Computed example of a mutant assay.
Amino acid sequence: MNKVDTKTNLMDAAEQQVRQKGADGFSYADLSAQVGIRKASIHYHFPTKSDLLTAIMARYSQEVLTTLDGYVDLFPTPKEQLIAFVAFYRSALEEGDKLCLCVAFTVGRDALAPQTRLEISRFRDAVATWLQNRFEQLSCASPARGWGEDPTAESAATLALVEGAQLAARSTADLAHYDAATKCFLGRLGQL
């Protein structure tokens, strides 16, 4: 296995651990057993756990933002893009036993290194901007329906909705809680 493959495997394993157990829920010994390398080899790629956590947050951010940008090309209307966004956050739960990486990190935010917290903030700001753009487009397309009167507030509320819905679903390992929490928002979109 070459260095790139080992580093990617470590990041993949760490991301799954964080999404399932939180940032404090695993150790380099856990990764060593999962990936099949010595702990010293992990330290070669990521000298500290905070280096690893920052790296997986930066990678996750790039992947998610690429996906969201793809929705703009894939779905012709902001309504469809927002519906896809809600579905994307639902899919991050898998079977209700994981969270999206940002939410998983945020739960234990105080224990994270400043650089990891900065990556989380950048990610959330970028997602909020993406959402804000959708609401601005909705405002132009459906001004009489009350969408986009305050795109910044709509953006913040929507991000909080899907993140909170994830926590509700994860707490019981039941996706029905996510669906119940997002039902009214999706219903509003359905009225367009």
Rank of each mutant, 00 (worst) to 15 (best):
N2Q: 11
K3V: 11
V4A: 11
K7Q: 15
N9F: 02
N9D: 12
N9I: 01
L10W: 00
D12V: 07
A13G: 14
A14W: 09
A14S: 03
E15H: 09
Q16S: 14
G22P: 06
A23M: 07
D24P: 12
D24A: 15
G25T: 06
G25N: 02
Y28F: 06
Y28K: 11
A29N: 14
A29D: 15
D30A: 09
S32G: 07
Q34P: 04
V35W: 07
V35N: 01
I42M: 00
H43F: 06
F46H: 02
F46P: 02
F46Y: 01
T48R: 07
T48S: 03
S50T: 08
D51A: 06
D51E: 11
I56R: 04
A58E: 13
R59Y: 08
S61N: 13
V64E: 13
L65I: 08
L65F: 07
T66Q: 08
T67N: 08
T67P: 07
Y71R: 11
V72K: 00
V72G: 10
D73T: 05
F75A: 05
T77G: 11
P78W: 12
K79Y: 06
E80A: 15
Q81H: 05
A84K: 09
F85W: 01
A87Q: 15
R90V: 14
R90P: 14
L93K: 10
L93C: 08
E94I: 13
L99F: 00
L101Q: 06
C102A: 14
V103C: 14
T106K: 07
D110R: 15
A111L: 10
L112Y: 00
L112M: 05
T116Q: 03
T116E: 01
L118K: 11
L118E: 13
E119T: 02
E119M: 01
I120M: 11
S121E: 15
A126V: 07
T129G: 03
L131E: 00
Q132T: 07
R134E: 03
E136G: 04
E136S: 09
L138K: 02
C140H: 12
A141M: 10
A141R: 05
P143Q: 05
A144P: 02
G146D: 07
G148P: 03
D150E: 05
D150P: 03
P151C: 00
T152V: 11
A153N: 14
A153P: 12
E154G: 00
A157S: 10
T158D: 04
T158L: 01
T158C: 08
A160M: 10
V162T: 01
V162I: 07
E163R: 12
A165E: 08
L167H: 13
A168P: 11
A168E: 10
A168F: 11
R170F: 14
R170T: 03
A173H: 15
D174C: 12
L175S: 02
H177Y: 14
Y178S: 08
D179Q: 07
A180D: 08
K183R: 13
L186D: 05
G187S: 00
G187V: 05
L189Y: 00
L192V: 09
